[in-house]
């Protein structure tokens, strides 16, 4: 308990004694965290954009005249059982007509004595990386079904989107890893620089009989506090950035709260771990 009080006192008093180094350290960690967070914001929105395009990819099986409700139901069940199918919906001829009128107006249908639209089954696909394969497989399996008159299958779009998803996943993963390594290196070096000024003090503490943990604790707390402050500042900056971006792109997806909290905690973890790594060089005794 005594060690903890000493550590807390040292950690806070160091803020004022080394205000310039503290300021530099906090700013550097904040910049690293903002870069990480901005990357998160961009990748979230990229994935969101691809996701919303994927939602527009549907297969539609147009049914032959004379299809009974029971036949349609059994086909729906068969499609539902296929891999990559998110949902299946039966669209009556009447609903198809209403949708057409909503989109193109009534004029085009004037003069027609009967509803030209056949009933159909719309299939929404799971928004995963196998979307292209799912479209191919469903088309191959059901296009020649005795109930199916015609099939609308956006194979090329589905494949392109699946490929875009795959590439974006790999790129964001790799770039995220690079940024994480860069942030860790920058933060560790910043903390190292701050601690290098106190190498002699660390040696003195060990000479007068302080254990390694006793020496570590104030630095650990100091790194943790720097990191938490930096993480909080990064949160504020990222919030401002996404608000500003919202004026230009109203559909922008902001960073969700749990991710924001993770940025603050990650900042704290970076600060604390950076201190421990930086201290290893000085804890010789």
């Amino acid at each position: 308990m005594r060690a903890l009080f000493f550590a807390i006192g040292q950690a806070f008093s160091s803020f004022w004694r080394r205000s310039f180094v503290t300021f530099l350290s906090i700013i550097t960690i904040t910049i690293a965290m903002v870069i990480l967070g901005a990357f998160l914001l961009i990748s979230l929105n990229l994935r969101g954009a691809i996701g919303s395009l994927k939602r527009q990819v549907q297969l539609e099986f147009f049914l032959k005249d004379g299809t009974t409700k029971a036949d349609a139901s059994s086909l729906i069940e068969a499609i539902k059982g296929e891999r990559g199918v998110e949902s299946v919906e039966f669209v009556t001829a009447e609903r198809a007509k209403i949708e057409f009128i909503d989109e193109f107006g009534e004029e085009l249908l004037e003069g027609l004595k009967r509803n030209p639209f056949p009933p159909s089954i719309r299939v929404e696909l799971a928004k995963d990386l196998t979307m292209g394969e799912a479209v191919d497989s469903l088309a191959a399996k059901f296009k020649d079904d005795k109930l199916v008159e015609e099939l609308s299958a956006p194979n090329r779009i589905a494949h392109s989107l699946a490929k875009a998803s795959r590439i974006s996943l790999i790129l964001t993963g790799l770039w995220g890893l690079v940024l994480l390594i860069a942030a860790t290196t920058i933060i560790t070096n910043t903390v190292k620089l701050a601690i290098s000024q106190r190498g002699d003090s660390i040696r003195v503490m060990q000479l007068v009989g302080a254990s390694r943990n006793f020496v570590r604790l104030p630095f650990l707390l100091e790194g943790l506090i720097h990191g938490l402050i930096s993480g909080s500042l990064a949160w504020a900056v990222l919030w401002g950035l996404s608000e500003a971006a919202g004026y230009v792109l109203p559909s922008i997806i902001p960073i969700p709260l749990p991710w924001n909290i993770s940025i603050v905690l990650l900042g704290g973890a970076f600060g604390a771990i950076g201190s421990i790594i930086a201290l290893r060089r000085y804890l010789n005794y």
Binding site: L207, V208, G209, A210, S211, N213
Partner: peptide, 25 residues
């Protein structure tokens, strides 16, 4: 272990070095 050695350094040993090694704060 480290904490036993630290205790001995604290209670049984005193150190003086060429560079005074005083805590500046």
């Amino acid at each position: 272990n480290d904490s036993q050695l630290s205790r001995i350094r604290n209670s049984d040993f005193g150190f003086i070095f060429q560079f005074h090694y005083l805590l500046p704060e």
